[in-house]
C-alpha cells in the first residue's frame, strides 16, 4: 500500500476536548464528583454519629421522627430520614459516611495495584530471564478467582481496612502486570524505539522516554476499572461479614446488618445498595468514556 505525501496536516483534537464531549465521561464524572463531595462533607450534611447506638429507636422506617437526649441530656428532635437499623443507628448517617470507606478503598487499591503492577510489568517486559518466572507466578495468582483469593487473604489477617485493601490488591496486580508487559513488548518492536536504540539511548532512558508514556492512558483506564472493582469487592466482603469490622459504617456492613430483617425492613439493604450501585456505575462509565477516548483498542477484561 502506498502512502500519500499529500496527507493533509490534521491537527489532533486534544484529548481533553474529546473527554469533555463524551457523554459517558460527563455522566460518570458527575456521579463520582457528587460522591466525593458527599464523602468529604459527610459531617456537615445533617448527619449524626454513624456509630451511635440507641435502643429506643431500633428498626424504624424512613422518615421516623423522635425526640432523644443528646450528650448534655437535653431533649432534641431528630428525623431519621432513611430509618434506623436493629441497633437504632441512623441509616442516613451510616450511608453518607459509608461513601468515605468505599472511595478510600477504591482509590488506594487502584493506586497501589497500578504502581506495583507497573513496576513488575516493566521488569517482566524488559528482563527476559525474569519474564518467564514472573509470568508463571502471575498465571498462578490469576488462576485463583479474585474474590476467593481476597476471602482467603482476609481470613489470615486481622480484619481491618488495611487487610481488605491488601486482599483486593493482590488479585488485581497480575492483571496490571499483564497489561504493562504486553504494552512494553509491542512498543519495543516499534521502529521509533529501535531508532532510539541505534542512536545509543541507554535502556533506562529508553523505557522512561519512549515506553512509559505509552502506558499512561491504558493505566488510567485500567485504574478506573480497578477502582470500581475494588469498591464492589470491599462491599461483597463486608456484606459476607468477613470484610471491614461491622462497627465501621460501610455500605456492605449496613447491608449485612440488614439481612436478617430484610423482609420487614428492606430499606436497610436497598438504600446502601442504591448508593453502591450508582457509585460503581459512575466509576465504570467514567472508565468506559476514558477508554473510548484515550485507548480505543483496549477492552474490558473478563
Amino acid at each position: 500500500m502506498a502512502v500519500a505525501d499529500a496527507t493533509p496536516v490534521r491537527p489532533r483534537v486534544s484529548a481533553f476536548r474529546q473527554l469533555a464531549r463524551s457523554t459517558s465521561v460527563l455522566i460518570g464524572g458527575f456521579i463520582v464528583a457528587v460522591m466525593v463531595t458527599i464523602a468529604a462533607l459527610a459531617p456537615w450534611l445533617g448527619t449524626r454519629d454513624p456509630a451511635e447506638v440507641n435502643p429506643s429507636v431500633r428498626n424504624k422506617l424512613p422518615g421516623y421522627e423522635a425526640t432523644i437526649r443528646d450528650d448534655e441530656g437535653k431533649k432534641v428532635p431528630v428525623s431519621y430520614r432513611l430509618g434506623t437499623d436493629s441497633l437504632g443507628r441512623d441509616i442516613y448517617s451510616r450511608v453518607v459516611y459509608g461513601a468515605r470507606v468505599s472511595l478510600i478503598v477504591g482509590l488506594t487499591v487502584s493506586l497501589i495495584s497500578i504502581s506495583i503492577g507497573l513496576l513488575i510489568g516493566l521488569v517482566a517486559g524488559y528482563i527476559r530471564w525474569l519474564d518467564g518466572i514472573i509470568m508463571r507466578f502471575m498465571d498462578g495468582l490469576m488462576a485463583i478467582p479474585a474474590i476467593l483469593l481476597a476471602i482467603g487473604l482476609v481470613s489470615v489477617f486481622r480484619a481491618g481496612i488495611f487487610a481488605v485493601v491488601l486482599a483486593i490488591v493482590v488479585p488485581e496486580v497480575p492483571r496490571v502486570v499483564r497489561l504493562v508487559r504486553s504494552i512494553v513488548l509491542s512498543i519495543r518492536e516499534e521502529p521509533y524505539v529501535e531508532s532510539a536504540i541505534t542512536v545509543g539511548t541507554p535502556t533506562p532512558l529508553l523505557i522512561f522516554r519512549h515506553v512509559l508514556p505509552n502506558t499512561v492512558a491504558p493505566l488510567i483506564v485500567q485504574g478506573t476499572f480497578i477502582c470500581a472493582a475494588a469498591i464492589l469487592i470491599e462491599a461483597i466482603l463486608s456484606f459476607l461479614g468477613i470484610g471491614i469490622p461491622p462497627e465501621i459504617p460501610t455500605w456492605g456492613n449496613i447491608m449485612a446488618e440488614g439481612r436478617t430483617l430484610f423482609r420487614v425492613f428492606p430499606h436497610n439493604i436497598l438504600y446502601p445498595g442504591l448508593f453502591l450501585a450508582v457509585t460503581v456505575l459512575g466509576v465504570n462509565m467514567l472508565g468506559d468514556g476514558l477508554r473510548d477516548v484515550l485507548d480505543p483498542k483496549m477492552e474490558r477484561r473478563g
Partner: peptide, 18 residues
C-alpha cells in the same frame, strides 16, 4: 451491560427477592 456489572450481585439478589 454497564449497569449490569455495576450493580452488585447481592443487591440484584435482594431486589429480585423483594
Amino acid at each position: 451491560s454497564v449497569i449490569g456489572f455495576s450493580v452488585p450481585v447481592f443487591v440484584v439478589g435482594y431486589l429480585l427477592i423483594y
